[in-house]
Design a binder for these strands. Sequence first.
DNA 1: GCATAAGGTAAGTAATACTCACTTTTTAAT
DNA 2: ATTAAAAAGTGAGTATTACTTACCTTATGC
Lengths: 199, 199
Amino acid sequence: MAVPSRKQPPGRIKIMQALRLLMEEQGFDAITTAEIARVAGVTEGLIYKYFKDKRDLLYQVLEEMFEGVILRIRARMDLEKDIFGRLHAFIDETVAVYATQRVFARIILIEVRSLPDFFTSRAYGCVRVYSRMLQGVLEEGMASGDFRQDLDVRFLRDILLGAIEHTCLWGVLFHRELDVAGVAGQLITVVREGIGPST
Amino acid sequence: MAVPSRKQPPGRIKIMQALRLLMEEQGFDAITTAEIARVAGVTEGLIYKYFKDKRDLLYQVLEEMFEGVILRIRARMDLEKDIFGRLHAFIDETVAVYATQRVFARIILIEVRSLPDFFTSRAYGCVRVYSRMLQGVLEEGMASGDFRQDLDVRFLRDILLGAIEHTCLWGVLFHRELDVAGVAGQLITVVREGIGPST
DNA sequence: GCATAAGGTAAGTAATACTCACTTTTTAAT
DNA sequence: ATTAAAAAGTGAGTATTACTTACCTTATGC
């Protein structure tokens, strides 16, 4: 689904590109529909031919980017054989995405959280798929005995997702470089062995 | 500072209470200034006598609540002697706050993140104080040798903060009960010992 | 070659955050 | 007590902006 980039009307594409471009420099709320239309080279009314409202436009832009991100992470994970390798791949690739795709990172980490209808959007479906990927690895690890058994998989998943997001958040907010290997490495260390004195 | 609840004009207090009340049921963006004024029993214009703009009102409400939260967490931590006890107190009390003070939780976890000028507000100062409390514990743990030495304290702090926030996020978003002891317990377990098979 | 639908336009509307000139109340010094 | 001045509060008005609607234009299939 959402695949045929062929049949998409040019105006629709230009509108989505315009928003992506504008979001390189401004937050979503600061961007007006008039500005989007101007940059896209179309009229304001056209936006509402293809998008239910301004937020729906944001969600569809996010969905488009998220599909690429999911493919990228999945491909990277498929290269790894052992559990911790796959876990590391997931974390490392996620951080790498946040580091390089700033518009994507800003949308997912900052913008959509406060928009209520996001959680019924197709873009949120991507979040669930993404989240499920991590959960899958964790379940494997439980089943194989590589991870301790006394943890709730969903809790553990949320702990990891939160840790990843928050370690990247400040860099994304303040446009600072992200030390991808550093963040991913520290995360994996903590997760593997905890913060107790090294064994 | 910010103490004298005496000298505050009644209108100002009523406006802040009105926003808190309205936020029990609605998101910040969905609340209009007209509605705030109506509930407060004052006119719309008065809001702008005491608050720079609508967001500034939100920040001041948050700041007021945050001061109480900080006192509460600090008091709880001061009861604990050993490092892991203090760490557990910080986590447990934070989760308890998110579980019981839903308006506070929603503002800090969901609303302010996308508002650019939040990070120059006094309320953000509270976030820094709060965050510094955790960092203090971690530094102690490093110094005393209770924690492993090869971790960056600030990374570790962000990992923990993110983990706490994210494990509470869905409950807060979807108005579900939070299993305070469960969340805090799992977090402490992971942090202490990692996810490797239990030793 | 024409009907039909899809792509696109332009002017208008309602809502809402915010302003400003003004009035009322409180405070405090003579 | 009187009054000046500062603080508290009002209410009508404005600019912005997301969104609508009726209309035009171009492409597509039969």
